[in-house]
Computed example of a mutant assay.
Amino acid sequence: MYGTIRIERNPSCKTKPGQEENLGFGRHFTDHMFIMDYEEGQGWHDPRIIPYGPLSHDPAAMVFHYGQAVFEGLKAFRTDKEDIVLFRPDQNAKRLNRSCERLSMPALDEEFVVHAIQSLVRLDAEWVPRKEGSSLYIRPFVMATEAGLGVRASSRYSFIIIMSPVGAYYEEGLQPVNILVEGHFARAVQGGTGNAKVAGNYAASLNAQAVAKENNCAQVLWLDAIEKKYLEEVGSMNVFFKINGEVVTPSLSGSILEGITRKSIIHLLNEWGIPVKEQKIAIDDIVAAYENGTLEEAFGTGTAAVVSPIGSLLWQGKSMVINQGNIGELVQRLYDTITDIQFGRTSDTHNWLVSC
């Protein structure tokens, strides 16, 4: 659709992190990146893979002033058979377009987005880690590049993909994390951009994240912006609770990002016959379940952390320790199932994997 991807190989490839090196998250970057441009009247054009390096943009580029920027996140995994696979990339391409639509940005051909990701991963295949639990994080993003200070949608954009070998998102690994329930700041509101993966959503979360860190919490659990009553999502994850044998998660209200891992988890729970509901969940309901002993497990889900057990919720100065701070049986089963599929340790009966 956009022509053949032109490839310019990097003549000065970097030294790749060693197997024993602590990769962290988003600290190292591969040798190449993908770029494609858009101009009104011409559409998307000139798809290319070039050496990874700085971008040069006019200081008046609209992305700097009016925040037209959206992104995605997915991973490439190296299986035990040395195959390299992606987990549900078609869903990321669909969500990228939904985000673009929300910010009045031009849509991309979704099959081409997956093709571009596959092409870049194949070229930098040696960057896909072999270390247990590690993967290659892939960050596609779209930003406005037209120079101009009038408040309107840009007429020019760039679609870029960069990649980074990563270890566990949380330094603790699969260990229960402490979460601060945020009662003051707001992340998003219905009718806003909360259900799109917009860069500004994350900028709006940084103050609360700093408060969470001061309280020895890894992330923030947001409440709705209007009533400050209903749970929405954790900063980088959707959230689930197991209460009296039933799993509940906040319904997609228009201010919550529709997570791809979230969708996969719901599919698995339904397949296993475990009751799961998408509904409005008040923080008072969680407090009541904690106090009467029916709050059995809590966890977050997302591309970066996959499944992350919640060990405690800090709300109004009170810490609610869940499952005695231990990893729950359901959390462990979900984590093992998803990661076994991703790393090829079990059959992909859902056709969620795409080869590179």
Rank of each mutant, 00 (worst) to 15 (best):
E171S: 15
A186P: 01
M163I: 00
D109T: 03
Q209H: 12
F159R: 01
L295K: 06
V70N: 01
I50T: 07
N351L: 10
I5M: 10
A288W: 13
A76E: 11
P47L: 04
V166P: 00
S158C: 14
I266S: 10
L96M: 15
E296K: 13
L136E: 01
N244I: 03
S154K: 01
I322G: 02
T145A: 01
D80F: 08
N326V: 01
L174D: 12
K280C: 04
S104Q: 14
L96V: 00
T301R: 01
E8I: 15
V142N: 01
P106L: 04
E39Q: 14
L313H: 00
H65E: 10
I161T: 07
E258F: 00
F141T: 10
P106R: 07
T249F: 07
Y290A: 08
N97K: 05
M36K: 06
N178S: 15
R345T: 04
F185L: 07
V321L: 07
P129V: 04
I286M: 09
W222D: 03
H28A: 07
I138N: 06
T349N: 03
H115P: 03
R345M: 05
L231H: 05
V354Y: 09
C13N: 13
V276Q: 06
V354P: 04
V306A: 08
E21V: 04
L314I: 13
A225V: 12
M105V: 01
K16M: 15
G254E: 09
T346W: 03
L55M: 15
W272Y: 14
R102V: 00
E132A: 13
S135G: 02
V114N: 04
R156T: 13
M62P: 00
P59F: 11
R139P: 06
T339Q: 10
G67Q: 08
W44P: 02
L86Y: 02
N351T: 13
L221D: 11
K228W: 07
N178F: 05
R122S: 12
G328I: 15
V234P: 00
L123N: 07
E82N: 11
A153S: 15
Q316D: 10
W222M: 04
M163G: 01
I322E: 09
S164K: 01
E21Y: 03
K318V: 10
R156W: 03
I35N: 12
T339R: 14
P59G: 06
A203K: 05
N201Q: 10
I286A: 07
V307M: 02
F34R: 14
R262I: 02
Q190R: 14
Q324P: 01
N92F: 00
A153M: 09
C356F: 10
A304Q: 09
H267D: 14
L55Q: 14
L313Q: 00
R88L: 09
W127I: 08
L257C: 11
Q91L: 14
V128P: 04
G245A: 03
C13Y: 08
V321R: 13
F71C: 11
N244P: 01
G293F: 06
E21D: 08
P47I: 02
S308N: 03
N216G: 03
V166W: 10
V234T: 11
P176L: 08
